[in-house]
Each structure stands twice: as structure tokens, then as C-alpha cells.
Amino acid sequence: MSVVVTLKINDIDVSGQEDETILDVAREHDIYIPTMCHLDGLSSVGACRLCLVEVKGMNRLVTACTVKVAEGMEVYTETERLKKYRRMLVEMLFSEGNHICSVCVVNGRCELQSMAGRVGVQHITLPYYNPLRTLDTTHERFVIDRNRCILCTRCVRVCDEIEGAHTWDLGGRGIESHVVTDLNTFWGDSPTCTGCSKCVHVCPTGALFEKGRSVTEMTKHREFLPYLTMMREKK
């Protein structure tokens, strides 16, 4: 039923449905736009700012994951300016937490780590923050290591939108923001967690992982997500 629109991405003619986002259409045409907080099957929040693109006629950069395509739109995804901003944003993430790739359970499979490679971050010019963050190992099967959390809120969204438990949320604000379970109580004591492991698998970094996994051993499986979303929409 929806209307087909034509637009240009990086001067290439493309088409999409009018209810699709710039990101959807770009991916259908194999045009890469970096994303971090976005995950197919979850709502989009536009928080990580990595998918910012330039749209001709708009005075601000827009997030490709939230803005819908429109007829005649001219989108640019790889301008020098965008590349510079993306490098800085990735640097900010590394500087903010305690990301020690070499000893991480997802070393080699981490989205933050590969994003650094992808946008060309080879060192962090910003000073490191070295925050003192907590680690919760009380759950019988999973661990949250907040040192590796980038506050993408995928865990919060999957727990709320798909599992329906809403065990996770954000506490505090600004640079002090952190993910919490329930009233910031131990995960292992949670009366609301179903132990479904969805949060663990959608987490882009090694912040959430299965107990007993050593360095490089944690593989995340997300195939379930689009499937679950589809099945639930049917109901």
C-alpha cells in the first residue's frame, strides 16, 4: 500500500517505500552507514549519532535510523565532515569507558572494536576517563561488566519491547549514566528477570556475557530478533 519514492544517496538513484528510513533504503542498496545503538527489530533512538548523514536542504545532520525517506531527497553518507565526526564519536566511546580489547570476552567479535577499524580510529587522542565502574556477577548464568558498556540501551529496549520484562533501565544522567537492573539491586536477586538472555545477545560489546566465557570466547546470536519481532507483530 505504501508509496514508492525515489531519492539519491551519494548521487546514486535509489528507491524505497515512504515509511522506510534512510538507513533501511541505504541497506537495501548495499550502501553502508555505520550504526551502533540501532538494531533491526528494536525501536530506534538516535542516540549514538554514528548514522548521521547530510541531507541537501536540511541545515542539520540527521540520523539515518530515524528519518524517513522522501521524494527527491539527496542524501550523502560519506562526506569528509561525517567521517571526521564519526572518528571523534568512536573516540569518545573509547575514552569514556574502560575498554581493554585484549582481555575481553568478545575480542574479535565486538561491534565497538570493529567500528574503530571501520571508521579508521587507530588511537584515541582524547584523554581516557578511567571511570570506576561496577561489575555484577550475581546472576547464575550472566555477567554485566559496566566498564564495557557504551549506553546504547539495546538491552533496555529488548527487555522492554520484546521480552516485556523491563528489568533493565538507565540510572543517573550525563556522564554518570549507567544501566541498572530493577532498583539498582543485584541482577541475581532480580524478581523480574526471566533469564531469557536476549539482553546478552543484543549487547554490541562485552558488557553483557555468559558466565564461564573466556577471552574471545563469547559469540552473540541475534537471529532470533527479527523473527520474534515479526511473530509478535502478527498477533
Binding site: 533501565d169 540510572g171 530493577d182 532498583l183
Partner: peptide, 25 residues
């Protein structure tokens, strides 16, 4: 008070973590 937060969460049917999130924001 924590007990009060639990009570409010239950009565308003709001997840505990959301109550904590709002309280600390």
C-alpha cells in the same frame, strides 16, 4: 525511601528499573 519506591512501582504498575531511572535522573 526504597520501600516507598517499590510500593509506588507496584501501584502505578511501572517497572522497578524505570522508577529508579526517573528517581535518579
Amino acid at each position: 525511601d526504597e520501600e516507598a519506591l517499590r510500593y509506588v512501582a507496584k501501584e502505578l504498575r511501572i517497572p522497578l528499573s524505570r522508577v529508579y531511572g526517573v528517581a535518579t535522573f
